[in-house]
Design a protein around this nucleic acid. Structure first.
Lengths: 108, 108
DNA sequence: AAAAAGTATGGTACTTTGTGCCATGGATCA
DNA sequence: TGATCCATGGCACAAAGTACCATACTTTTT
């Protein structure tokens, strides 16, 4: 079972997705209703190839050491990501996705 | 050795810190100089107590399930964080720090 | 009122990310 | 020629994070 099951994630995803219409009907999204919001608001997180990770870092014009500090990981790990020795996990992928989609400033 | 050594991190920290004066001397921080930047630009990441994590989530008015999706982790993990059964690691702490300091929108 | 769904906890077992440490080599600059 | 930044590499290891299941309380829905 190489591919992780998405039981927990899709549980939440499903429950959150169905309320999109509610938000639409309400007109505006007030604080109280904000407890439920559409998943489409979230920055999409996809798997990243080693080159893609390096591309994000080089676009930001950062060394591995500085980039690692921005993500709060070690430089050794960034090196391993870029060489495919290790693959970034859940929270790391989210950080990388933010940097990729919204720019490095989003995570500084 | 419960407390992690900070060898790698401080290596980078030291090297990055000394160039603060260079930036100051240059007047403005152009793209080329951006390879080196001061660490003070980074959102400070500190350890978070379980209650602090829950506070961040409740301020965002999110269920554990939705909050977990925003961080790209499982709901079970968020529950464990808030009960002190597990402690968020490097990348997770960064995400939580961003949410805490800049607001939940910063990581959506 | 009952059914259904959302919310949170609890535990167990397991994978592998991420860390620490140290050594190496190339590039750049005083 | 030192010194410093940069990136790679490997090895051992703790623990973060995952998957899965059961339970129970609360809210919403029909």
């Amino acid at each position: 079972m190489t591919e992780p099951k998405t039981t927990n994630r899709s549980d939440a995803l499903r429950s959150a997705h169905v309320v999109a219409k509610d938000l639409h009907a309400a007109g505006a999204i007030d604080k109280a209703t904000m407890r439920r919001f559409d998943v489409s608001c979230l920055t999409p997180v996809e798997d990243l190839r080693p080159e893609a990770i390096r591309a994000i870092r080089e676009t930001a014009q950062m060394s591995q050491a500085i980039f690692a500090m921005a993500l709060n990981v070690t430089t050794a790990l960034v090196s391993k990501w870029e060489r495919g020795e290790k693959k970034p996990g859940g929270p790391s992928l989210k950080l990388l996705a933010l940097a990729s989609r919204k720019g490095i400033d989003a995570i500084l």
